[in-house]
């Protein structure tokens, strides 16, 4: 364990643990768009920038992305120093220039007092900030269905060959973890469509509600050795079933006791 100071408070952290996880544990609000506990830190959005210094640095300080910087003994961290706020303001300003219509970016920018960008606005821009969280999460899920394609101005997130991705199972991990809700999907009449690929949805045998895609359920059955029946019923019905089962067990117990 190491001792470090965050905003004046001495806190403990594991040696090598990244600053952002210590900061989050201390319930300090530091913005980050590209971060997710499930995947390796990437440092793409730069918003989690913090000021660091040490006693022996003699007043000198550095500005680092807290999602990548490891905690160490004697480190003094300031998450909301004036310079840090300035840096974040510049970052959200740049984001706003590229994604002027993105609700998440507009909201974040407003928190930093940026209501219109000071840079030239990208007129035909989309809402993808190219943080690559979707592709990293897809890799983590083990599907590797999407990746970043091209580079520079033309860079984008896309399935291979710009066609419906063969390895996609419609798990929706990409879309539901996208910090700017850019990845579109639609579910209607028992089918889910994402990345131009159509998937059959399973229906809960209890209430008829649509649950996950059949392909994803089959994948989980195979990889995680979960019986397929588990996916034929939704979570709510599972709980109802469980309550009923518990009632039965209690009555058995009562019978056994008497």
């Amino acid at each position: 364990m190491v001792n470090l100071t965050i905003n004046g408070k001495v806190v403990q952290a594991e040696e090598g643990e990244v600053l952002l996880s210590v900061i989050r544990r201390e319930k300090i609000d530091v913005p980050a768009l590209c971060h997710h506990e499930a995947v390796e830190a990437f440092g793409a959005c730069r918003l989690c920038v913090v000021e660091i210094t040490r006693q022996e640095w003699d007043g000198w300080c550095d500005y680092v992305t807290s999602c990548l910087y490891p905690a160490s003994d004697g480190l003094i961290v300031n998450t909301h120093a004036a310079k840090v706020n300035d840096l974040r303001k510049t970052i959200v300003d740049l984001f706003l220039a590229r994604h002027p219509k993105c609700p998440e970016i507009i909201e974040l920018a407003a928190e930093y007092g940026v209501y219109s960008t000071t840079y030239q606005t990208v007129v035909d821009g989309d809402n993808c900030i190219l943080c690559g969280l979707c592709t990293r999460i897809c890799d983590r899920m083990g599907f590797h269905a999407i990746s970043t394609v091209g580079r520079g101005h033309g860079k984008e997130v896309s399935p291979p060959l710009h066609k419906a991705p063969p390895d996609c199972t419609g798990c929706l991990a990409c879309a539901q973890n996208c910090p700017t809700s850019f990845i579109e999907y639609s579910a209607a009449k028992g089918f889910l469509t994402i990345w131009d690929k159509k998937f059959e949805l399973l229906k809960c045998s209890g209430c008829g509600k649509e649950t996950i895609t059949k392909v994803f359920a089959e994948h989980l059955c195979q990889e995680r050795k979960i019986p397929f029946e588990y996916f034929q019923i939704c979570d709510e019905c599972h709980r109802k079933q469980l309550a009923a089962t518990m009632g039965e067990i209690t009555s058995w117990d009562r019978e056994a006791a008497s």
Binding site: H144, S158, P160, L161, D167
Partner: peptide, 8 residues
């Protein structure tokens, strides 16, 4: 290698 990586 995943096709997505080859394409990337």
């Amino acid at each position: 290698v995943p096709l997505s990586k080859v394409f990337s």
